[in-house]
């Protein structure tokens, strides 16, 4: 079996049971960061330098969505010999964190399956594979509920 490796280390849990994006929170002002921030706080009114890791919400609502009708250029990894199948990209609002996070939708989910305001959950997925490794990432999957 191929070795599984996160596409970027430290950005999400490797536990498929409770899969979450991992961010950090400034202990001084409470601002949340994803991608994680570990050295300085981007709140101009805060001089915080201490950050704690936190799991971001496992569900959010669709802020918007689109797809990739054409093969994106490198450094996106795809096999140029395989016919291009558009993937869907979703911008998801996380209420508690007060932020919007982008991600690909699960394979098979098209723009017709989505609507602004619909609920999605964050699930583990595969970005691409090489001969000996599987690079994992996060994906969004509609729950069927509208928020």
């Amino acid at each position: 079996m191929k070795d599984h490796k996160p596409v970027v280390p430290g950005w999400f849990t490797t536990d498929d049971e409770d899969f979450r994006l991992l961010g950090t929170r400034c202990t001084a002002c409470g601002t949340v960061f994803f991608p994680r921030q570990d050295t300085f706080c981007k709140n101009p009114a805060c001089a915080g330098t201490e950050f704690e890791e936190l799991k971001l919400s496992g569900r959010g609502t669709v802020w918007s969505y689109t797809n990739a009708g054409y093969r994106p250029p490198a450094p996106y990894v795809s096999d140029p010999d395989v016919e291009w199948v558009p993937f869907t990209i979703v911008a998801v609002q996380l209420a508690e964190e007060g932020m919007i996070v982008l991600g690909q939708a699960e394979p098979g989910i098209t723009v017709d399956d989505l609507t602004v305001g619909a609920e999605v959950e964050i699930v583990p997925g595969v970005l691409y594979e090489t001969e000996d490794q599987v690079f994992t990432t996060w994906k969004f999957k509609p729950t069927g509920a509208s928020a």
Partner: peptide, 14 residues
């Protein structure tokens, strides 16, 4: 680009 395949038109589409 690497993690999402998000080009400039991706944002315009959103």
């Amino acid at each position: 680009f690497h993690v999402l395949g998000a080009t400039n038109p991706t944002y315009f589409g959103l």
